[in-house]
Design a binder for these strands. Structure first.
Lengths: 228, 228
DNA sequence: CGCTAATTTGATCAGACTCAAGTGAAGTGG
DNA sequence: CCACTTCACTTGAGTCTGATCAAATTAGCG
């Protein structure tokens, strides 16, 4: 009896591998959480540093967070931008292998790791979120490997724009929450190359740039083609 | 009572996030599994293709497996090499987002996904393996992002050699199970650049190359330095 | 309105790629 | 057992994409 119950419990928990991860909907409302502590950050504040003890797991409520790694000489790789609803800071070991910073003003919830188990009991949705969050991170990271390893600058920008658009808007107009430097460090390019690629896409009539942080995708088909 | 038991069960299962993932030991013995079906493959055979229905999760018993993604024009990115003991083929959705092929002769176990839950009941170790496997994939992918996005050719090779050494041997001599082409597609380089980098490291006295597939790390300190 | 930071643009440079040829080792068949 | 084929790897020469260095514009912001 007990065994059956335990098996039941473990099965869905251990093998979310078997469940279909629903896509994150743009504009999904991320209501105030029932557990966890809410924290606010202004632009470019550090949420945690590489090597910090990983006492919490986080979820973005509003704004954008970047997680990045540094090389000893300062070269930086932003592994991901986390938007509202995204989970970040999950670690296997006891310290963070990334640094996390706010890209603009943002609000996040922090869940103390050692409380997660009991929290999960009270908030089933949270439990699901954590597992799904990890899977989603993996999928994103793996797609990003292909981009970094094998795509040209123009293709990287095209893929990036389509990704941000899908995650933040329903139409063809999007606001970039991050700087050219952040984009460059995410795509393995320099800011100059990022800027030139934007200009090139604009000249080809594929996008419009009303301002640096505002992009309109006027020719999605062409972007998809560059997405290879 | 029941609730407590269930919480207990889910906690360790849902949040392996909290457990410390033990490092894979070189030469760890990967005994015949108690469940799952064993399959053998010769060099360069396809285990599953990108887009295939993800009916199984796999574990390498011996040999090496590569998982890769292709761009429409044939450019390839190998996201990882899987050695004995490694899990691969875990998917969130119902189809594989990678292609998996044998690098040399290899033996693997296949676990039918829809049976995993019940198998986990009989084989607790397996359940743990799956979760840890996913975490390890994530860590590897994230480290690889930094390599692909920000490291030079020489640094990529250095990192690669140290990684393979750590995973396959206790001393400084290692056999590369994969071709230059595979290495190139893993590191985001061409075979010529891979070859030239090896030669350069050899000329600098950092490695020895008794043969193309055999490397001796004569100066680990220098490699670590390149690892940045 | 002036100051500062972010972005764009230009000119030059370099690391990695492409194309091409050469070397070497492994295997095949006579 | 040796000549021949094949395939993997190495090396060389030239090119090109994206980086670097530098300057000009533009956008925010107090």
């Amino acid at each position: 009896m007990h065994t059956a119950l335990l098996t039941q419990a473990t099965s869905s928990a251990l093998f979310p591998l078997a469940l279909n991860v629903p896509p994150l909907r743009p504009h999904a409302d991320h209501a105030a959480p029932t557990v966890g502590s809410v924290r606010s950050f202004a632009k470019d504040e550090e949420i945690f540093a590489e090597g910090d003890r990983a006492a919490f797991v986080y979820k973005v409520l509003s704004g954008v967070v970047r997680t990045s790694k540094l090389l000893s000489d300062g070269r930086r790789q932003i592994d991901a931008f986390h938007l509202a609803g995204d989970i970040f800071g999950i670690e296997a070991g006891d310290e963070h292998r990334f640094c996390a910073e706010s890209v603009g003003d943002c609000v996040i919830v922090a869940y103390r790791r050692c409380h997660l188990a009991s929290l999960a009991g009270k908030d089933a949705q949270l439990a699901q979120d954590m597992t799904v969050g990890m899977m989603r991170s993996l999928v994103r990271a793996q797609n990003h490997l292909l981009l970094l390893g094998r795509k040209s600058a123009l293709e990287k920008i095209a893929t990036f724009l389509l990704d941000i658009a899908e995650r933040t808007t329903d139409d063809d107009a999007l606001d970039l929450p991050m700087s050219r430097t952040d984009i460059a460090d995410h795509l393995g390019l320099t800011i100059e190359t990022v800027s030139r690629s934007f200009t090139q896409l604009e000249r080809q009539g594929i996008i419009e740039l009303p301002s640096a942080r505002h992009v309109v995708l006027t020719n999605r088909a062409a972007l998809e083609r560059l997405n290879a």
